[in-house]
């Protein structure tokens, strides 16, 4: 029964229609169409909730048409719908009607990763005060180890999707001055209950990437004259991305 039903939902076969009560084939199909519509509309709605900025940017009609195509090829594999859409950004990258907006795929990757961060457990973090106190007592700076929490992630995009995303967190997005084609480095983490992103310089991005490999500060310092360690540490402490700072 399920094979027939599933095939009928996605219009691969009408075999199920024979098992539907009705006065005419038209009536049977009308009844079946309620389920076809329910499945597509509910999944389109779910994708709209997962990618709200993308939906806002392209408009409801375009988004739903794109989502419809995606759903045909990629059904959810879990009843937890907030996990749906993991490859939506890859799909968009290869979806011809979306090519006029080359940043859309990257934006969707950002939205998806932030939602998944939101749904992770709240990380153990050092408060700004605790981090400041630890740093003020350091005796051997060369032995300092900066441990980033597990939720701390990096993203490099050829487009300014972080700025675009942040602008759309305001009731009236202000896109004036936003250069979407400028490449962007982002730190993704969790602030309170929600996933959030912060723009980084390229040197900061490489510094944090190195810290993720090896928390020893002396190994992570980038060979970049423009890198300001004090300023970067102050930002990272404010964003509460460390779960421990110690002298290893």
């Amino acid at each position: 029964m399920q094979n027939q039903f599933n095939a009928a939902l996605f219009k691969q076969s009408d075999e199920l229609v024979n098992d539907i009560k009705g006065h005419s084939t038209e009536e049977r199909i009308q009844r079946l169409n309620v389920y076809r519509n329910n499945v597509h509309v509910s999944l389109q709605t779910a994708l709209g909730d997962i990618f709200p900025v993308c939906k806002q940017l392209v408009g409801e009609d375009f988004f739903n048409a794109m989502a419809h195509e995606y759903i045909e090829q990629n059904r959810p594999t879990s009843p937890i719908l907030s996990e749906y859409g993991g490859n939506f950004s890859d799909f968009i990258a290869n979806f011809p009607p979306a090519q006029a907006l080359p940043y859309l795929s990257s934006l969707c990757e950002l939205e998806y990763r932030l939602l998944q961060l939101t749904n992770t457990a709240e990380p153990k973090t050092l408060s700004l005060e605790a981090a400041q106190q630890t740093l003020s007592q350091v005796q051997h700076p060369e032995a300092l180890a900066l441990h980033l929490n597990a939720q701390c992630q990096l993203m490099h995009s050829p487009f300014s999707v972080g700025a675009l995303y942040l602008a759309h967190q305001q009731p009236e997005p202000n896109l004036k001055g936003l250069q979407i084609s400028a490449p962007e480095y982002l730190l993704l983490t969790k602030a309170g209950l929600y996933g959030c992103c912060y723009p980084l310089s390229e040197a900061e991005y490489h510094f944090i990437n190195a810290l993720k490999q090896n928390p020893n500060l002396s190994h992570a310092l980038p060979d970049d004259d423009g890198f300001d360690l004090g300023q970067t540490l102050a930002r990272l402490m404010t964003w509460q991305v460390f779960d421990d700072i110690n002298e290893s």
């Binding site: 029964m1 399920q2 329910n38 499945v39 779910a46 059904r75 959810p76 594999t77 879990s78 719908l81």
Partner: peptide
């Protein structure tokens, strides 16, 4: 109702035939 087919979740409450086997 049912909502999962193979590894796919269809996100709707789909009907079942009222048979002994079901």
């Amino acid at each position: 109702a049912w909502s999962t087919h193979q590894q796919y979740f269809l996100n709707d409450l789909l009907p079942v035939p009222y048979t002994e086997a079901r």
